[in-house]
Nucleic acid binder design. Structure first.
Lengths: 224, 224
DNA sequence: GCAATCTTTATAAAATCTTTATAATCAGCC
DNA sequence: GGCTGATTATAAAGATTTTATAAAGATTGC
């Protein structure tokens, strides 16, 4: 958390409400009532998200948004009392990322704030255990920050173990998922590749911390 | 335009309506009624945006979304008849980028589609990695400042790799995007053209730094 | 027809997987 | 505890698959 959010809203009650709401989520909030002041601040200090009320006193919110978008691509959530379709379309086409109409639910607004912070900071949904990280989007594994090259089979096994973290997977389950149903009588395949994975991922392959053996049953990835 | 949009919606009337609506904007639309089929398609061929109806017959839309997000970060707009706050919050926290409730205005939906396409495909004026630069507007590639001539096929492959920087693209994905769906059994096409690209772009084509092979899987453009 | 490009093909090289042998470890039993 | 048979770990050789590359043939557009 601790993302910085700029609120541009000229109704004092609403400004105060938004500030309080966002601070409950540990966000740092900068509130403004006037468009010019907000722009000046943004030039000085970038923020992670902007909440914009269209009904400003000193200038038109749509114009403000259009002007902002000429140089800044920070996500903007528009908050407005205007329910008309054409207002929404105009704001979105002016570069808004989302449009919320008053009255709105606090929980929904916070969820939309989270969503917009998330997709702008494309932090991958990565699995990690210890100093090992697996990023299924990039199909990439790293150890202590350094990329580790895994073969297709090794990667498939690790992904399978991660998707069932802390559970025991039998040889047959691994063989079926990775090699296919007809390979259930080749447990040695799993052993050889598991040894390879340990060589690449464990600090002490002979005394594995993550890739544990369950004798007589199968293997388990310990996430702790 | 010409972005590809996947629609997952099990009501035939709504599916048809969405398809028609999106096609008026020159989008390429792939419609599905079942979650499994849609996932299978996405693995084969990435899209630019996903419209998801939460009320699927064969599985829970929220589960589908969570599963998708474990490996895919394509923008998702949820369309739902459920107006409850907790449904919205859950969907947004599951990784949805936007949430639209039925009944919705066509113009607003299209505006939200535009907004989500725009913000997730930042209008990079030029991609670059190392001393290589690709300008999609001029359709021009240069290396260390000097223009490099690429054939149409070479350029298409490079652009595709750049749009999915650092991700692995399978042979099938490359073949489908560049040659078409009926070429998925010709991986040698990709190999030959990839070798050409390396000759033109890499300092040491035999030991590529950018255009990496992932044996058994596909190719990856390494930007980092 | 010519030049550029794409497709096809053949061969060499590289990477990975499978197989095998041996050593280590484990579980049950006396 | 120590023995025994079964299971597991590991390295390394062998086999197979996958990939790189050049070059010849086919196609396309001007």
């Amino acid at each position: 958390m601790a993302e910085t959010i700029l609120v541009l809203e000229d109704d004092p009650a609403m400004q105060s409400f938004l500030g309080t709401l966002l601070k409950t989520q540990q966000h740092q909030v900068h509130s403004f009532s006037e468009g010019i002041a907000a722009l000046q601040h943004l030039v000085q200090q970038p923020v992670d998200l902007i909440l914009l009320d269209l009904g400003l006193a000193d200038m038109d919110g749509q114009l403000w948004l259009a002007q902002l978008r000429s140089w800044c691509d920070t996500p903007v959530i528009v908050i407005s009392a205007r329910h008309r379709e054409q207002d929404k379309v105009q704001a979105l086409d002016n570069g808004a990322n989302d449009y919320v109409t008053k009255p709105f639910s606090a929980a929904e607004l916070l969820a939309r704030v989270r969503a917009n912070l998330r997709h702008n900071t494309p932090q991958q949904q990565a699995f990690s255990f210890g100093n090992i990280r697996l990023d299924p989007v990039l199909r990439q594994v790293s150890r202590a920050g350094a990329e580790v090259h895994l073969t297709k089979t090794e990667y498939d096994i690790l992904l399978l173990l991660m998707r069932h973290a802390d559970k025991v997977l039998t040889h047959n389950q691994i063989l079926t998922q990775v090699w296919g149903k007809t390979y259930t009588d080749r447990p040695e395949y799993v052993r050889v590749h598991m040894a390879q994975l340990r060589q690449k991922l464990e600090d002490t392959p002979a005394a594995p911390v993550y890739l544990k053996t369950e004798p007589g049953v199968g293997y388990r990835l310990k996430m702790t």
